[in-house]
């Protein structure tokens, strides 16, 4: 993990790089929404991101791109201390 300076703030994760944007003149807003929603789909590159993380007693910054060359299982879950 990369270093994360621990302060009183609550940093959040974010995607890396601007989202893919199509610049068709017609229905530009709609086009952009469609592209954003379709960002993660099977057969497509996984959108890169960087986020604060906790592992093994340490805080750090983790990027998806740190794991290029390895298989990755990315699991979202509703929340800490939820039951399932």
């Amino acid at each position: 993990m990369k270093e994360l300076k621990v302060g009183c703030g609550k940093p959040t994760g974010a995607t890396v790089g601007a989202p893919a944007e199509q610049t068709k003149e017609k229905d530009q807003v709609l086009e952009k929404e469609v592209v954003d929603m379709a960002a993660a789909r099977v057969g497509a590159k996984a959108p890169d991101f960087e986020a604060p993380a906790y592992q093994g007693g340490n805080f750090g910054q983790v990027s998806l791109s740190d794991y290029l060359g390895k298989w990755v299982v990315l699991c979202f879950y509703p929340g800490d201390f939820t039951f399932v």
Binding site: G13, T15, A39, F49, A51, A53, Y54
Partner: peptide, 14 residues
């Protein structure tokens, strides 16, 4: 690692 996505930014893209 357990990652923090407080803004939901990553979850939205996925």
């Amino acid at each position: 690692p357990i990652l923090s996505d407080g803004s939901g930014n990553i979850g939205k893209v996925y």
